[in-house]
Design a protein around this nucleic acid. Structure first.
Length: 803
RNA sequence: GCCCGGGUGGCGUAAUGGUAGCCGCGCACGACUCAAAAUCGUGUCUCGAAAGGGGUGUGAGUUCGAGUCUCACCCCGGGCACCA
């Protein structure tokens, strides 16, 4: 027996598997399908870190297990390759982003291949390749043609120093300060620009409802629901006193409407102008509106921002109470929520603070519990008073429905559902992204780039440094291309798409990655979709998953696919922390790279260690010292080959451990409880180690269980045992249910619930048998009462004497 | 503030309501060795000489029996946050 030389073994099998196409997807088979997907990485220059390895190892183990269980498994990998770091690097060094990105991808691919991950590399995709982004552009046109993509004015975050637009995530400094440029710390302003939007809000209802169909972590579903923020409520229409105009408000808490005493408009509300035109308040209001325009929504909607407003001098008539509501403008009222107008009352802390500041009269409709604090409407409970026909009623669902019905019947307003979700702004004034396939005629009207001109190539003759407009605007080639194809005076769209667009459909492409005529064939999608297991970090619980679901629903609505949810089962791997428990980050310089451990201990050890660390979904600190335990485990399995002897047989007790191990490891992989699966294999190893000689079949069974976890070493051992076919094509072992339990069991003996000792009894012994054994036991026999009032007996576990 | 997770040995963790601490790391002692490493063996929650107690963030409760279920509180982590 040679020693366990992981370097030699891993090199040998990596080459062999590549040569034999061991990981190519079995497309032709009639086996049931299983699609196991990782969230594809952004290929950063830093390379793979231990957090990637955790998720990838888990899905690899799962994929290998499923293959052994008789499934045809699709397990692909690709690159979310467009994005800012490469562009920023280009600005600094003038290196074209494609060069940087392709280099990073080569590095990533190499690292991933070393880990023995069974991806089908023939399906590799990169979102930055024209053969891929051609279909991202197709998707844009598909949405455009179906009225789901439109250009309209939108507020963007603008850094005056860098002369560029920033994504919301880029308006928080590293120290957590909000509303500043992440790169230079300059206070950002907001600009109105004409931007492309995807109308995700059209699907808001389905995006909430269909969460019930999928097997996702509950917290992720809650996050999605909160983000969408579906609220049922009521619109109330108010006449403005002395004017021929009316104002609509939205209320999510209809039970509290009778407490409202004033009204607040968003400063940017179109009605403001008319309300104050020619009045005394006009100048104050206009000043206020101007000041609010100069503030970002981020600043205006910060909890700590002082509430301020201005009175319009106008009054609205409340149809419910007949009250005259003073009409104010306020910084906290937002145009893009509800109707942009709020009915305000003392039952909302924000409204109350505002009213106190400006001494606006207030009313209450629920009796206070504490004299200092009025009841908060968000609690939505209590008994109403001073509420017209509803006084004396208790707030509950029926009452709320009754109030909405009453408002509707009286013609005061109507029921309405509102969402917090906003349309998806996909324009980016960036270079390194998929170009938006739109051209403008000389009048400035947008036209789609005809499909025969896709891919609409990203130009290369650009100035990366941002100068106030998109880098694509500096490309002579793009301008010339546009005029050549469309005519004189035509101009290209120079914004690119948000990289989230690229990643919102890649899982379709994997089913048919080389298709030149469609984004994926109907047959391929029908065969493989939806994704059966999707693994990725919890940081994508909102945006990526929401966008991918939106695209899926849009494609379904227009007949491209027949299902509405892309990811049937979703799991998150937890973050791996640095050894001191801190988050790994580039700035702290504590990022742990798996390479040195792969070199030192082997990929198999690193895989086993990361799975053994703890529950997959938990956040856990890396501990270099602990890796040795996993290495020792593999070495002991390696050395066990010496123990194999013809004609040997397992002790019944050892065999029962083996049967339990087959059962538990299979069940645990299915549940992705991989730490306990490894633990159980260690238990099995310990039992085998105690045997003088080992039958070949028992050893081979353990190897097959271990194969998904340690694919290299088990493959080598399998060959050493004389097999010519790969262990990864073996069937998953079956356990013998009749041999699961040991012949003798240990029963805990309790007196009034306290353990006093144990007795050994034959398997299947009944209460009477156990009592007899206890009576014959010297110590326990005298300790247990002769006439207990009750005996609780749990077969095979405990017997409890209640005196 | 609101919504999710979590608090178990020196450490990572394990326990269908049924013997808390499995498995691993570390540590201690022993074997092997001239010696060391590697390997193997024994031990390792705590008080106690022992017999026997106590112990899963705190306090109550349900139960024959609670790490596990219920309530209140404390602490840690994550997400959302002027959303009408």
């Amino acid at each position: 027996m040679g020693s366990y030389d992981h370097k030699k073994i891993e090199k040998k099998w990596r080459k062999r598997w590549e040569e034999t196409g061991a990981n190519i997807t079995d497309e032709s088979s009639t086996k049931p399908k299983h699609y196991v997907l990782d969230m594809f990485p952004y290929p950063s220059g830093l390379g793979l870190h231990t957090g990637h390895v955790e998720g990838y190892a888990a899905t690899d183990i799962y994929s290998r297990f499923k293959r052994m269980k008789g499934f045809s498994v699709l397990h692909p990998m690709g690159w979310d390759a467009f994005g800012l770091p490469a562009e920023n690097y280009a600005i600094k060094t003038k290196t074209p982003p494609r060069e940087t990105t392709d280099k990073a991808i080569d590095n990533f691919r190499n690292q991933i291949q070393q880990l023995g991950l069974s991806y089908d590399w023939s399906r590799e995709i990169g979102t930055h390749n024209p053969s891929y982004y051609q279909w991202t552009q197709w998707l844009f046109l598909f949405l455009f043609e179906n009225g789901l993509a439109e250009k309209r004015m939108g507020k963007v975050n603008w850094c005056p120093k860098d002369q560029t637009v920033l994504a919301n995530e880029q308006t928080v400094s590293e120290s957590g300060e909000k509303g500043v440029c992440v790169r230079c710390g300059t206070k950002i302003v907001q600009r109105e620009l004409s931007q492309w939007f995807f109308k995700i809000t059209d699907f808001a209802d389905a995006l909430v409802k269909d969460l019930d169909q999928v097997d996702w972590p509950e917290s992720t579903k809650i996050n999605q629901r909160n983000w969408i923020g579906r609220k049922e409520g009521v619109i109330v229409t108010h006449k403005v006193k002395g004017m021929d105009m009316s104002l609509d408000t939205f209320s999510a808490f209809p039970a509290w409407l009778f407490a409202d005493t004033y009204m607040v408009l968003a400063p940017e509300h179109p009605a403001v102008k008319t309300l104050v035109a020619g009045t005394e308040a006009q100048k104050d209001v206009e000043d206020f509106v101007k000041r609010m325009q100069d503030m970002t929504t981020i600043d205006r909607t910060n909890v700590n921002t002082e509430k301020e407003g201005v009175f319009t001098g106008r009054f609205a008539l409340d149809p419910l109470t007949g009250r005259e509501f003073p009409i104010w403008l306020a910084n906290f009222a937002l145009m893009d929520f509800g109707t942009g107008i709020i009915r305000c009352s003392s039952h909302d802390i924000r409204d109350l603070t505002f009213a106190k500041k400006y001494t606006i009269p207030l009313a209450e409709v629920v009796e206070r519990e504490h004299p200092d604090a009025p009841v908060d409407a968000h609690a939505n409970k209590g008994i109403l008073k001073d509420s017209g026909p509803f006084s004396g009623r208790t707030i509950n669902v029926e009452l709320i429905q009754g109030i909405i019905k009453w408002i509707t019947e009286k013609g005061y307003g109507q029921a309405r559902v509102t969402y917090r979700l906003r349309d998806w702004l996909i324009s980016r004034q960036r270079y390194w992204g998929a170009p938006i396939p739109i051209v403008y005629d000389p009048e400035g009207k947008p036209h789609p780039v005809p499909k025969e001109h896709l891919p609409w190539l990203l130009p290369e003759d650009v100035e990366y440094l941002p100068k106030g407009t998109s880098p694509l605007g500096t490309s002579k080639e793009l301008a010339e291309r546009t005029e050549k194809i469309f005519g004189k005076g035509w101009k290209p769209e120079i914004d690119t798409m948000d990289t989230f667009v690229c990643s919102s459909w890649y899982f379709f492409r994997f089913t048919d990655p080389k298709n030149a005529g469609e984004f994926a064939s109907k047959e391929a999608m029908q065969k493989w979709m939806p994704v059966d297991l999707y693994m990725g970090g919890a940081e994508h619980t909102v945006l990526h998953l929401m966008y991918a679901r939106f695209i899926t629903k849009a494609l379904q609505k227009f007949g491209h696919i027949s299902f509405g949810e892309p990811f049937q089962k979703l799991r998150h791997q937890g973050m791996i922390l640095a050894e001191d428990g801190a988050k790994m980050s580039k700035s702290k310089g504590n990022v742990i790279n798996p390479d040195e451990f792969v070199a030192l201990y082997g990929a198999d050890t690193v895989r086993v260690y990361e799975m053994f660390m703890g529950p997959l979904e938990a956040m856990k600190p890396w501990n270099t010292k602990n890796i040795i335990g996993s290495r020792r485990f593999l070495e002991r399995v390696w050395r066990l080959q010496e123990r194999v002897q013809e004609g040997a047989s397992l002790k019944a007790e050892t065999n029962s451990v083996l049967q339990q191990t087959i059962k538990k490891v299979g069940e645990d992989i299915e549940l992705l409880s991989l730490n306990t699966a490894v633990s159980q294999m260690m238990i099995c190893l310990n039992a085998f180690d105690a045997e003088e000689a080992l039958p070949l079949s028992a050893y081979e069974t353990l190897l097959r269980l271990l194969a998904p976890f340690a694919p290299y070493m088990t493959e080598e051992l399998w060959e050493l045992l004389g097999h010519t076919a790969s262990i990864h094509q073996e069937e998953w072992p079956l356990f013998d249910a009749s041999k699961l339990e040991k012949d003798e069991v240990v029963i805990a003996v309790q007196l009034a619930g306290k353990v006093k000792g144990t007795v050994i009894a034959p398997r299947g012994a009944g209460e009477g048998d156990i009592v007899k054994i206890i009576r014959e036991d010297g110590k326990l026999g005298t300790l247990m009462p002769q006439n207990p009032s009750r005996i609780v007996f749990v077969p095979g576990r405990i017997i409890n004497f209640i005196p």
